[in-house]
Nucleic acid binder design. Sequence first.
DNA 1: CATTTTCCTGTTGTATACAACGTTGCATTG
DNA 2: CAATGCAACGTTGTATACAACAGGAAAATG
Lengths: 229, 229
Amino acid sequence: MRTKVTAQQIYQSLRSMILDLELAPGSRFTETQVADYFQVSRTPVREALQRLEVESQITIRPKQGCFVRVVDIARIRDYYDVRVAIETLAVQLACTHMPDAALRELAQQWDPTHLFFGAESSDRIKQAEEAFHIALAQGSGNDALVRYLTDINDHIRVVRRLGWPDYSSIEDTYAEHHDICRLMLNRDVAGAEACMLQHIRKSQARADQITLAQLSEPARNPFEGTALQ
Amino acid sequence: MRTKVTAQQIYQSLRSMILDLELAPGSRFTETQVADYFQVSRTPVREALQRLEVESQITIRPKQGCFVRVVDIARIRDYYDVRVAIETLAVQLACTHMPDAALRELAQQWDPTHLFFGAESSDRIKQAEEAFHIALAQGSGNDALVRYLTDINDHIRVVRRLGWPDYSSIEDTYAEHHDICRLMLNRDVAGAEACMLQHIRKSQARADQITLAQLSEPARNPFEGTALQ
DNA sequence: CATTTTCCTGTTGTATACAACGTTGCATTG
DNA sequence: CAATGCAACGTTGTATACAACAGGAAAATG
């Protein structure tokens, strides 16, 4: 049984492919290719592609095709700068609004003494790292803030994941997340802000060392030659 | 001669109608109504509506219709909080990056001694006020920051304009904009940040006094009964 | 050989027909 | 009269056909 493929699902699939670098940055594809790939008409494909263009994940050039957004190191730095401002505000607001219970739960989840090397897969850690920051943003009670932070994450995810192979970084992350939670439990706004600032700047420093060479991977175009089996 | 109406133009038109409150918040309309209004098919209309939904200016309920986003005072407060964080960063960055010439031009434009009461129309002032903040954001050289601030403006414009009838506010705005420019020319980051903070909080205080009653205006649905002349 | 022109192909932009689904009003039944 | 089932309508979701245009290749021309 093949369940019906809808525009929303196409959007999610394409978005994942782009964020996971399964579609090479800068590569080109057409609406028809995607439509054939998902065995649907161009209509739902266009809907998905237009959403992706609004999020500036792709660029649609009239009468030419769609192009996966290129990773520009300078722009990544921009997103990091905005991220610092946004997350500082998030900590500040969450410090006032989040209940102790929620903070204790987060603190326990990132307790460094619970960390066993190799027990967690690399991918899982990366996902949890993002979820931690989103959780704090949601704790601020400010929906707009959550939306912007989500958008930022979607744009920096590439380098965030690449520059993260070593165990000491993971250890540090646990410690820093734990510290932030503890400071927030003490309702120490200034302390939590400072800790978060340092935490993000550290991540930015790692991102800065990613070179463009590391990004240009062999990734090919999955849509070529997939018309019909 | 009637030039061809394209999806992009429909998007712009609808967006203006919503932001200018020509479409009552909460009111409902259908794709077919808009298509008839612009004398085009549903296809380009759908494209425009989907973009507006991504920006959360409208909500599309499957098989029901499109609904203009309702103005939620609490959410406006949220946007203002984020705006403070974003614009503080903008001032900080622009203080480093903007050339003297650009700053002097802005300072001159907002020189209080050049202000003549009644010389400028109210609408024009409101537009210039927004342009000033966007100009500073662009001066930061951070494209992501500009995008987010633009999005914020689109969501707070409603109250920003409503709570702004009096001349003393305009006078204050000129003085504050001028002060910010002067401080930035002196490359006084902390001073400029503080001035900007106070400037925005003042605007937020005005926005807080807007009541929902002021927002529920008689505005009707322009799409009803406009099929063909 | 260099240059211009023309035509062809590929791609997106739009119009239209149809399918699927929710809603609403009315009739039916207890 | 209240409650329930049913059918007709309105609305969005998708498929398909056609139009418009950009780009390149090939042919014509000097």
